[in-house]
Design a protein around this nucleic acid. Structure first.
Lengths: 195, 195
DNA sequence: GTCTATATTCTGATAGAC
DNA sequence: GTCTATCAGAATATAGAC
């Protein structure tokens, strides 16, 4: 531990636990990952895991929480832009940046049943709309037609899975970001700005 | 059962079983679906399921087998086309058609860990390349650059997840096919032919 | 072809010692 | 904060009756 920046020991273990859980989730899916596997990977027992989280669902919730908070903020920010073009640019750049920074989580976000339920749980109390719906509204305005719905779906799912794909692990953040944004621009029918 | 076209009773039960398994897989993921759930949904006991399949893996293998055979055939066919444009057109149209006809499986194909392992198992004995690799080669030729790899990844994953998304369930095959092809054409940087 | 019954292993989860 | 010990239940899987 680097002196001066350490939190409590609990926080460090908690952080390590979540990182380990996320890695295992991305390999085996949430349902395919047992507390036993997480504990073994950490070199502790199941009971030690239960000290930090009361249930497996709580672990899934904690794993997605930071990304969901960022996503929420991103959509809010993008919504304040005046033109539709500016809203899309901001949302796409922010979304891709988020996926690249949370690569391990990226592929789970649009596809893993356990993660989707965790997202549902995080949305339910506040009654907020799902991000797909909010981003769709941002891109296509209220009352989007079928074509816009399909394109947005391909965009969100495709970028997420691609960002998290093992084949992309070797790419540095900047390169991956650049190509994902190009894919997004193509899907949205917008010319690329640079290169 | 319609007289004249029935197979044996075994075959019918087997078919019903696979259809039920696929539906449950698509809702809960392969790892999140137990033999108990499949049996209960069919109105039989676990032991009855074990009569048809020795292991859970065998069920997953059987669920993906038809689509994989079609995919294989599709890539082979597309490869025979003379120009790169014709190869891409054939592969894209065939791939989208396959996804639409196997909607329930579509989303699992590029994302579910259990299904991905089943695909691996089906490829291992023959030593064939994965479909992503073969389709990538088809689209971009040998030695594709990073940008083509990312775009192809977004394409395959995005179209699959979009085709299988619950939000798209209401769309008829023809409509869904049309919009998915447009998404694919945009990603590949090719103008749409119709509309 | 489907059943009951059972074996075994593993799951998520709890209680309480250290 | 992590452990041992333990739980009830569910998992995959098998044996053998009908």
């Amino acid at each position: 531990m680097t002196a001066g920046t350490v939190g409590t020991a609990v926080e460090n273990t908690r952080t390590r636990l979540l990182a380990t859980a996320l890695r295992l989730f991305s390999e085996h899916g949430v349902e395919g990952t047992s507390l036993q596997m997480i504990a073994a990977e950490l070199g502790v027992t199941k009971a030690a895991v239960y000290y930090h989280f009361k249930t497996k669902d709580e672990i899934a919730d904690a794993v997605v929480a930071p990304a969901l908070r960022e996503l929420d903020q991103l959509v809010d920010e993008a919504s304040t832009r005046r033109t539709r073009g500016a809203r899309i640019d901001h949302a796409l750049a922010g979304f891709v940046d988020l996926l690249v920074r949370h690569r391990t989580l990226a592929a789970l976000l649009p596809s893993d049943p356990g993660i989707l339920r965790a997202i549902d749980r995080s949305l339910r109390p506040s009654g907020r709309e799902p991000f797909t719906t909010r981003l769709l509204a941002l891109i296509s305005g209220p009352d989007p037609d079928i074509r816009e719905r399909v394109l947005t779906h391909v965009l969100l799912a495709g970028l997420g899975l691609a960002a998290g794909a093992p084949d992309m692990a070797e790419l540095d953040d900047e390169t991956l970001r650049e190509h994902l944004i190009e894919a997004g621009r193509r899907l949205l029918g917008r010319p690329r700005r640079r290169q």
